[in-house]
Design a protein around this nucleic acid. Structure first.
Lengths: 165, 165
DNA sequence: TATTGTTATACTCTATAACTATA
DNA sequence: TATAGTTATAGAGTATAACAATA
C-alpha cells in the first residue's frame, strides 16, 4: 500500500474517487475559464442570462440560488468587463433586465469550446461505448444520491451551490 | 430540454457529472461526520495521525499540505475534544508529537463505518461487476487528469487541498 | 542562524440586514 | 406596505508574517 493515506471514505471506494475527480475537474475548469478572465460562477451567470435574454436580476438570482447582494457584485464585474448589461425594465423602474453583449456571447462561446476540449482530455482513450457505460453508471449513482436530472442542490446547508463552484 | 440550464461543462458530459457528483458526495460525507462532531478536515487529520502514531505537527502538515498555523487550530480543536494529544519529543523540546487517544481511535472507527455505509448507499443497485467497471473507468480518467494513485493535488492554485474538503 | 510551533493580522468570501427608489 | 436592487457590515475561513522557544 502507498504511504499516502486515504482521507475521505476509503480509497478505492466510489465515493472517495468521485470526490477526488470532481474536485480536480472543477479546479481544471476554473483554470481554463480563468484564461478568459472569468471564474466559474461568472460563466454560470453568463449561461443563465443566455437562457433567455432580458431576465431580471432577481429571476436569475433565484435560478442560481445566490443572494441578491452577491448578484450585484457578480454583475458589476461582468458589466465592467463589457460582457453583459443592465437595462431598464419598460414599466417597472426598480427592475434591471440583463442582456448579454455581443462580446459576452463571444466569450461564452469560447468558454464552451474550452469546456468541450476539457471533456475530450478527460475522456481520452475511452471508446464511445465506454463513455456511454460510464455516464449510465454515474446517472444511476446520481439517482441514489438524489440528484435528479437538472436539479440544483438545496442551498440550506451552508454550502455554496455547485452551480457556482 | 429542461428549463434548468447547464452550468459547467455540458450537462451529459463526464466532466460536469463528475463535478456534480463529487460535490454532492463530499457534502454528504460532511453531513455524516458532523454527527460525530467532526468536519471532514478533522477526519483527515485523525487519519493522518493514525498512519503512524507520534509524528510531529510539521510532518503531518506537510503530508496534508496545510499551513502550520492552520494545523494549530485544527489540533487545538481535536485536543479539546479529547481525540488526540500533543506530547513532548524526547530530545527536541520544540517539537510536539501527535498521538490518537483511545477515544480518538473510537471516533475514527465510527467515522470509517459511517463512510462505508455511505459507500453502500452511493452504490446501491450496482452489481459487483458494475462497481468494478465503474472504478476501472474512473481510474483511467484519473490517469488522464493526472491524479496518480495516492497523490494529493498541487496546492499552488489557491484552492483548498482536497484532502481537507 | 535555522527550525518548531504559536500568535497576530490581513484578506477574501459570503450572507444578513439596513437602506433607496420605486410600486 | 411590499418589492428590486444596492450598500454596509459582520462572520467564517484561510494564509502570511511576526514572534518565542529551542536547536
Amino acid at each position: 500500500m502507498s504511504e499516502q493515506e486515504q482521507v475521505g471514505p476509503n480509497r478505492q471506494s466510489v465515493g472517495f474517487t468521485l470526490s477526488q475527480l470532481g474536485f480536480a475537474t472543477s479546479r481544471r475548469f476554473g483554470e481554463i475559464v480563468a484564461t478568459l478572465g472569468l471564474e466559474p460562477r461568472h460563466f454560470a451567470l453568463l449561461r443563465a442570462v443566455r437562457v433567455a435574454d432580458g431576465q431580471s436580476q432577481q429571476a436569475i438570482a433565484e435560478r442560481l440560488r445566490i443572494p441578491a447582494s452577491t448578484m450585484v457584485s457578480l454583475i458589476d464585474h461582468l458589466e465592467s468587463e463589457g460582457l453583459l448589461e443592465r437595462q431598464p425594465h419598460p414599466t417597472d423602474r426598480r427592475t434591471r433586465l440583463l442582456h448579454l453583449t455581443s462580446r459576452g456571447a463571444e466569450v461564452l462561446e469560447q468558454a464552451t469550446i474550452l469546456g468541450a476540449e476539457l471533456e475530450g482530455s478527460i475522456c481520452a482513450g475511452l471508446s464511445t461505448a465506454e463513455r456511454e457505460t460510464l455516464l449510465g453508471l454515474l446517472a444511476r449513482i446520481a439517482g441514489n444520491i438524489g440528484i435528479a436530472d437538472g436539479e440544483l442542490p438545496d442551498h440550506g446547508t451552508g454550502q455554496r451551490p455547485e452551480a457556482l463552484q
